[in-house]
Design a binder for these strands. Structure first.
Lengths: 355, 355
DNA sequence: CTGAAAGCGCTTACAG
DNA sequence: CTGAAAGCGCTTACAG
């Protein structure tokens, strides 16, 4: 049950293995007639390339790497990653590439994986996520020479290619929107301050609130987990000068935040408006459904892969802006006077029940 | 900047490449002294194996494959998969293996991926999930000779090795528990009927309700999505003979179900008890938190990998039972007379607020 | 215990 | 346009 090799094809076609290789790979070096004959024989024999042989001689693996450094429990809940991965997959599939995937505990382990992958030539390049303000991975990747793109940045990504979303603009728009609804006291349950995009959002948040003359905007730091997000929400809603609107840096915490309002006997959105950064099915699961900042996460993943393959192909590093997240108003935001923001059915229903 | 190969080591150590290979792989064939010397030189040179070369000559890739045939949107939300994958990863990492991962639309595409992977020898074996009642993948994998284990079954997995959970026992226990709380009308929002484990649960559900003399138990079929799950819940709760307890076949639908009760002005658990099959952070996010059937999903993934590597190593097919899911009572279940099931803080709180 | 050699299945300069 | 050959970096029988 031996699988056919190019040697078998060459023999049947009465040509050299080299000619077969050229024909199979669409390279010049064989006549149209010969190529056609070779292709027919290959199809007849059911030939498929041996990836190891190809990788060894061509010194490329046709495989891209992705490592996620988060505890599994957190990962499982964040729809972001699966969507991102599935966008990566779609693009990879189009280009007949595979994805080598690994989950690790922290950036140190992540770097170890990169070293191993690259020294074994298991991958041609990697997509890096969750950029930190001080991120050791950037320097290591540059030193290794492992082709990489950062989904994040562009600040702090060194000389690596970045694909980034304009969180500054998105945050500014969001604060302006809440201010237009009459909110004067807006608070934020932010992500880990060590992360680059958290910092970007925090700075934009503060700048916008100052510019619009709102009360001192407060950001409570979290680790993105539902527990800590709930705790932060509880603290904010217990303060004497309670905020009338809260922005959550991810959907998981926003959902936990809704739970806290119920627990405290507060109505959403009558007593407090909530907005989730990153939209997902999770945001439609709650009652009322969550107003959220939506972006096409799988397109973002696909975009990252396209750029990475360019880098693998020798392209110069660049900085590419992806689409800016846009607001999807649902049932958790309202004017400060209590009117609901829009006529989304669930939003209306919530208003009716709650007030 | 050429990376060292075993030839470099052999030259430095004044031995043959073969000897180096034996030394590096812990094989017999070299003296202890020589081995030690070779290892030292390899470390000094910073040698690491080239995976392609190793795969080509040893005809194994040291890589395991996993393909998930679900729409990305659904995937992202189900914590199950990320937990399962992370369990797989942990085990793989221990054994210096990689994971090739792919998301596709359906089983036909999944089979195509298997064929490609196996013919290219990109993987040594695969873990199969989401077994259907009639599952074409089983036959294809057997025919291909691609080593595989099914996480599911054991019925319907043909001659493939299976790692399964006793859903029959878990369902029986669950129904008995609800009956003990006084529930006479128990309904179920089930998964897709084409899936093997859905069928197992449905049969167990019906058997248990009959045996306990409960009203005709009703299962509403779904596709596991929040939308359809919500619709099913709405239908059940609108019927004149409303159930007092509902079992959901996944956590996503259970969360959506809580939303429906709020929308219909019903209290949980005072008016209706809810139970989620598969526990995850999602179940702690709701208010009140969801009573759920918990199992160690990442251990399940790790177990699957261990068995798969045995199969890859030539082990005979077998059928291995994993741990049975166990009930974690939280705030969404109560005695039919309205007493709460336990003194979980959130459960108490919900009782106070709602009733 | 050790060495020399063949071979895994491709790709890619290098000659014709 | 085509062919013969070397080589990618390992592993593994096969002799000594």
């Amino acid at each position: 049950v031996k699988r056919p090799t190019i040697a078998d094809i060459a023999q049947r076609a009465n040509v050299s293995k080299g000619a077969v290789s050229y024909a199979l790979n669409g390279q010049p070096g064989v006549s149209a007639a010969t190529r056609k004959r070779i292709l027919a024989i290959a199809a007849e024999l059911g030939w498929t390339p041996n990836s190891a042989a190809r990788a060894l001689s061509a010194s490329r693996s046709d495989t891209i790497g992705l490592v996620l450094a988060r505890p599994a429990s957190t990962l499982g809940l964040e729809p972001f990653f699966m969507e991102f991965i599935s966008g990566i997959q779609a693009e990879l599939q189009l280009r007949s590439r595979g994805l080598l995937f690994q989950v690790v505990a922290d950036h140190a382990e992540e770097v170890a994986v990169y070293r191993r992958w690259w020294s074994a030539r298991s991958v041609d390049g990697v997509v890096v996520v969750d950029l930190d303000v001080e991120d050791a991975r950037v320097g290591v990747l540059s030193d290794l020479g492992l082709p990489a793109v950062v989904a994040g940045g562009p600040v702090g990504a060194g000389s690596l290619t970045t694909i980034w979303t304009d969180d500054d603009a998105a945050m500014t728009n969001l604060v302006e929107y809440l201010a237009a609804l009459g909110h004067q006291r807006i608070a934020r349950v932010g992500g880990p301050p060590r992360m680059r995009h958290t910092r970007t959002r925090t700075e934009a948040f503060e700048r916008a609130t100052v510019r619009l003359g709102l009360r001192a905007a407060q950001t409570v730091d979290t680790d993105f987990s539902d527990d800590v997000g709930a705790r932060a929400t509880r603290a904010l809603l217990s303060s004497p000068d309670r905020p009338t609107a809260i922005i959550f840096d991810n959907d998981v915490m926003a959902v936990a935040g809704i739970g806290v309002t119920a627990e405290m006997g507060l109505s959403v959105p009558a007593d407090v408006s909530l907005v989730a950064w990153d939209d997902s099915v999770l945001c439609r699961l709650t009652h009322p459904p969550l107003t959220a900042l939506n972006r096409n996460v799988s397109a973002y993943g696909a975009h990252s892969v396209r750029r990475l393959l360019e880098v693998v192909g020798g392209a110069d590093p660049g900085s590419y802006r992806d689409a800016t997240p846009s607001l999807v108003p649902r049932g958790t935001t309202t004017r400060i006077d209590g009117a609901i923001t829009q006529d989304h059915p669930a939003g209306v229903r919530a208003g009716v029940i709650r007030s």
